[in-house]
Amino acid sequence: MLIHPQFDPAAIRIGSFAIHWYGLMYLMAFGQFLLLGRLRIRAPQYQALGWSYKDLEDLLFAGVLGVVLGGRIGYTLFYMPGYYLSHPLDILKIWEGGMSFHGGLLGVLLALLWFAHKHRTSFFVVSDLVAPLVPFGLAFGRLGNFINGELWGRPTDLPWAMIFPLVDAIPRHPSQIYQLLGEGLLLGIILWIYARKQHRLGQVSGLFLLGYGLCRFLAEFAREPDAFLGLLGLGLSMGQWLCVPMIFFGIYLIVRRNTKTAVIGS
């Protein structure tokens, strides 16, 4: 079996100043958004809309706010509403951890709505632009989870089982790696290839919702559920239940009848 390396959570230390791995992962996620987004925004239809690299930077800034605020508020509402209702000031203590992907997704959707309204275009024109850029950013986030030794998996006897010494001496699924490979790299490659061809408006966004929902739903079977929640109805975790509407809405966007053509990828 494998043993988690127990990385120092700080990648760089200079005296009392430290740069943490998780912060670096966020920076790399945002950097790849700008890099790949630059390729996406070169598509003729986006150029016809007059969008520039500056617009991409504005979209990233709004998206970052959506991720942070939505992720934190989503965590307080989805996972620990009772505690934060009794300790409302603790909601501001982001440095203590506690972010929800699904809450962050809702925050990003609001950012996309704002951007679409500002540019007087369809929401799905913007979301189809952004969708292929998201999974690779998620991959960096899951790498940060692995480095920090958090969000570990359930016990297993598989050959690649890993012991997380700061948790216990039980071999567990390295579920962070599963999510990195599934909802990160695999989904990112599929979406990037899919978005290069012409599709109906909203289908690229739909494939992201469906793909992420399925990858996360399956990965949750290997991931240890939050101790304060455990498993919910039908033996599913909170993460799995939150993925169910994503899956169904993603299918709807893919199969719905829509004659409007989406923007062709790079």
Rank of each mutant, 00 (worst) to 15 (best):
G103H: 06
H173W: 12
S100A: 15
R72M: 12
F101C: 10
P81S: 09
S127P: 02
G82T: 08
Y75R: 09
F78V: 09
A131V: 03
Y75I: 07
L65C: 15
D90C: 06
D128E: 08
G74S: 11
P132E: 11
L129V: 03
W114L: 13
Y79S: 05
L109P: 02
A111S: 14
I94E: 04
M99F: 13
F136E: 02
R72A: 04
N145V: 00
V126H: 07
H173Q: 07
R72I: 12
Y75V: 03
F164Q: 02
H119Y: 14
G104E: 12
T121S: 14
K93Y: 09
W160V: 14
P174V: 03
Y83K: 05
A139M: 13
F115L: 08
E96M: 14
H117R: 15
A169Y: 09
T121A: 01
S100L: 02
L92D: 09
Y79V: 06
D157N: 15
V167T: 08
T121G: 10
G97I: 13
P88H: 09
H117Y: 13
W152F: 15
L143G: 03
W160K: 00
P135W: 12
G104S: 14
R142T: 06
K118T: 14
P174D: 02
P174E: 00
L77M: 12
H173E: 06
G98H: 13
S100F: 10
T76P: 00
L65D: 00
I73C: 08
Y83E: 11
F78I: 13
W152N: 11
M80V: 03
P135N: 08
P165A: 05
I170L: 04
A116P: 05
G153R: 13
V134T: 09
P174R: 00
G149R: 02
G153F: 06
A116W: 01
G141H: 00
P81N: 04
A161T: 07
A116R: 05
V125W: 04
P171E: 07
G107E: 05
H119N: 12
N148E: 03
L69C: 02
D157M: 11
A161N: 12
L69E: 06
G137I: 01
L151T: 03
D168F: 00
A116E: 04
A169I: 05
R154K: 11
P174Q: 02
A131K: 07
